[in-house]
């Protein structure tokens, strides 16, 4: 019995990602020993911080049986509009900036939720439309010009660090305080999904919406919670991104949705809903970040990285899909 359990663990989806991450890290490290420095952890953390926030939200949405492709547009609106308004009005307030961003996310989340849960529009179509409307309105009414001077107190946050590290060659790496956001988010989402009826309800509607309704779950309420959560977090993550870049660009994040969905799915979340875990998503995000940021150290040309990302997505999802198929065909118990 015990050995079977071990075998299951070792051949689990997450272990496969860990193997790939390990092999990739070894390969990069052999080419470039600087990779094995603690500084890599800091630069990678910074690189995947915002991505991880997006990915966790996307994971929750996908578990509930939906999908949300509107978060890049939400994030762009939520970082650009507050900064633009605040600069124009010469207001300088960190709290207001985040509140503003969250409210923008909230509004878009509510629109998504209404379209999906009440009007029963397929989530992909609904969020695609909302995404296009959001970014179109943003670029039309607020402009496309990058704002390089963001309000001072907001900008100052980018220089708050929780950790400084100086490596052998004397270069200093600092870990931003914002790393706490995805850490808290991951812990909270994990606990909610696993140990509350709210979380189990999200799994339930992703598994079988009709069964969930019969059992007595309030499906519409759960969908509202999911899409609003996704919208608000996307807004906040957008503002963090803006602060980390120390500039507000209404276009930078556009087009990142596919990569995020890929990271989530590679992390073992089934695109059909009902399955997924925070730990898997973290691994998926790390893998994609490694490929995007560090493959260059192996001497892989930039265009090939795109290829490799694609290949990882295809292979990663194939493994998930093959496993699902195996479950289907395996001896039923």
């Amino acid at each position: 019995m015990k050995s079977i359990k071990w075998k299951e663990v070792l051949t689990s989806n997450q272990m496969f990602i860990i193997y790939i991450i390990a092999i990739l890290s070894l390969a990069i490290g052999m080419k470039n020993s600087a990779f094995f420095d603690f500084s890599t952890v800091i630069t990678l953390s910074r690189a995947l911080l915002v991505t991880l926030c997006f990915a966790i939200c996307e994971m929750v949405v996908i578990i509930s049986g939906g999908i949300d492709v509107s978060f890049p547009a939400v994030a762009c609106a939520a970082l650009y509009i507050p900064v633009k308004v605040m600069t124009d009005a010469e207001i300088d307030n960190v709290f207001l900036a985040f509140l503003f961003a969250a409210v923008i996310g909230l509004v878009v989340g509510i629109v998504n939720a209404i379209l999906i849960s009440i009007l029963k529009i397929p989530p992909l179509i609904a969020t695609l439309g909302v995404s296009s409307m959001t970014s179109g309105a943003l670029l039309t009414f607020f402009g496309t010009r990058e704002i390089s001077r963001i309000p001072e107190s907001v900008s100052a946050l980018s220089k708050v660090f929780i950790l400084n590290y100086t490596n052998a060659s004397g270069a200093t790496y600092s870990l931003t305080v914002f790393i706490l956001v995805p850490i808290i988010l991951c812990i909270a989402v994990h606990l909610i999904l696993r140990y509350t009826m709210l979380g189990r309800g999200i799994f339930a509607i992703g598994g079988d919406q009709n069964a969930a309704r019969i059992a007595g779950f309030n499906v519409i309420r759960l969908q509202f919670i999911v899409y609003i959560f996704s919208g608000v977090m996307a807004g906040i993550a957008g503002m963090i991104y803006c602060i980390l870049c120390d500039s507000a660009n209404p276009l930078n994040l556009m087009g990142s949705e596919m990569m995020i969905i890929a990271a989530v799915v590679v992390g073992g979340t089934r695109i059909t809903g009902g399955h997924g875990s925070v730990s898997g998503t973290i691994l998926g995000v790390i893998l994609i970040a490694l490929i995007q940021n560090n493959l260059i150290m192996l001497g892989v040309p930039t265009y090939w990285q795109t290829f490799v990302v694609g290949a990882v997505i295809v292979i990663g999802t194939s493994i998930t899909s093959l496993k699902a198929k195996a479950v289907e065909q395996n001896q039923k118990v």
Partner: peptide, 20 residues
């Protein structure tokens, strides 16, 4: 049957009770 394929046997059985 209106069961949840993605959840365990235990959770499926106990689900209604938790909701009730």
């Amino acid at each position: 049957f209106a069961v949840f394929p993605n959840l365990t046997v235990a959770e499926n059985i106990a689900m209604n009770n938790s909701l009730m």
